[in-house]
Nucleic acid binder design. Structure first.
Lengths: 261, 261
DNA sequence: TGCTAAATCTCGAAC
DNA sequence: GTTCGAGGTTTAGCA
């Protein structure tokens, strides 16, 4: 732990020193950050020219490049992962060129001054998750059933059936019963089978046709076919859209909703 | 020039020192770059959680924030310009919170170690231009006339006529003469009137019917009606599509093209 | 101000 | 590999 030095930084290196440093760092798959006065020429899907100014340039270990001005969310120039790099000095100017195949394009960044140059070996295994709880998604459907399908009218939720609880239970625009199973992330075979059991149970109790709808951000591989076999349906439901619905209707309470309906 | 120090950097500052440094830099509207081990919680249009890992965080002078992992073009977390910042230390953890109103959201970045911390006053007045010159668009039409309309056959280009030069001059699928006027951006009334003059000239010389086509990314307001009045046509032509055509056919030379035709 | 269309879109999954 | 669709999309152009 104490032996590791994740970041090495140089202040105001000459362009020759900087070129050497960048070449080494890129070949060692390190992340490189360069702050300096530069201009940029891009040619590929489109073409662009950026006149000189002071910017931050990031070269990542996967070969992606970002040129950031002092303002703005977006990079002014960039290149996605997979670039090859050429670094060389011509006169007093350091040229860093990122080359990409398919589509064939290149970004050339030219520095006449480098203020800060650093190379880093970053360890980042942290998981990233976008969440919207299953309960959030359920509440969103109850508040705004049209996000699932037009004309859907929820009757109850968390209804007890044989094997467990039906997430949402309602009637579609044609008066047909609908059982909805919600998954907050990719729905697997288990979700499909669980829904099938619920549908079967409701069918025997109600003694009429029942639709089964699996609502999830996406389906796992092969589950679409399984659903077809089971006579069930899939409806893509974006957790973020649910969060939006909740935010917009956060003044309306669930209780009020059912009173109105 | 020699007195200006655009970038100040600290290596391995403690979190207390880092907090103070960031507070000062942000209040002075400097750009701040932090490299360290951090985790991120976002709540707003959606919600997200990023487990600990080593990343690069950039806070720009306009109040935008970027959290970059060691790979990938896109930031894993971010916030657009206009954020307010809270920086504080709790225990041994440095929390930087970016708050945005409308939509109300916040990103909290928590560091337990900072490897590199720098603040910079960058001067960037350089102009950025995405180009596809009018000449590029002309060459694209000559190489691939179908991007304008099927069956179009160019005869010459830059043809001298009374008031100037016709960009492209050709014959359509029905053998009718066509005069094309190209504009690389929104075409205004002037472009329409210029085209009208060219068409009139060619009509008097050729003594037969002549179509006038204005090729541009779009029309300014009211120009569509003016074109109709003048008996001219508009064809949307995307500069980027032209660049694509040129890239795909860059081995074919213009001369060869005319020899083949 | 809100909507619509484009972006050097990027990114990932399905086919 | 290519195509298709979503994104905390963002951003720019108009009604």
């Amino acid at each position: 732990m104490s032996g590791r030095k994740p970041v090495v930084a140089l202040e105001n290196p000459g362009v020759e020193r900087a070129a050497e440093f960048i070449r080494d760092a890129v070949s060692e798959r390190k992340v490189v950050v360069v702050v300096g006065n530069c201009w940029v020429d891009y040619r590929g899907r489109a073409s662009s020219k950026l006149e000189p100014g002071e910017r931050i340039v990031v070269i990542k270990e996967d070969g992606s490049v970002l040129v950031h001005r002092p303002v703005g969310y977006e990079p002014v120039n960039w290149q996605p992962a997979g670039c090859l790099f050429q670094t060389r000095v011509v006169g007093d100017v350091l040229h860093v060129r990122a080359i990409r195949r398919k589509p064939s394009e290149s970004v050339r960044i030219s520095f006449d001054r480098v203020y800060l140059l650093s190379a880093m070996s970053l360890v980042d295994r942290g998981e990233f998750s976008l969440h919207a709880s299953e309960e959030d998604m359920q509440r969103a459907i109850l508040l705004e059933p049209s996000i699932l399908e037009d004309g859907l009218k929820p009757i109850t939720y968390e209804k007890k059936v044989e094997p467990g609880f039906v997430d949402v239970y309602g009637v579609d625009r044609n008066g047909k019963l609908v059982v909805v199973e919600i998954k907050r992330k990719t729905a697997g075979r288990d979700a499909a089978l669980q829904l099938a059991r619920y549908v079967d149970f409701v069918k025997t109790v109600a003694n009429r046709e029942v639709r089964g709808v699996l609502a999830a951000p996406r389906l796992a591989r092969g589950v679409q076919r399984l659903l077809a076999t089971l006579g069930l349906e899939f409806k893509a439901l974006d957790p973020k859209k649910c969060t939006e619905v909740l935010r917009k209707s956060e003044t309306r309470k669930l209780a009020e909703f059912f009173e109105e309906a």
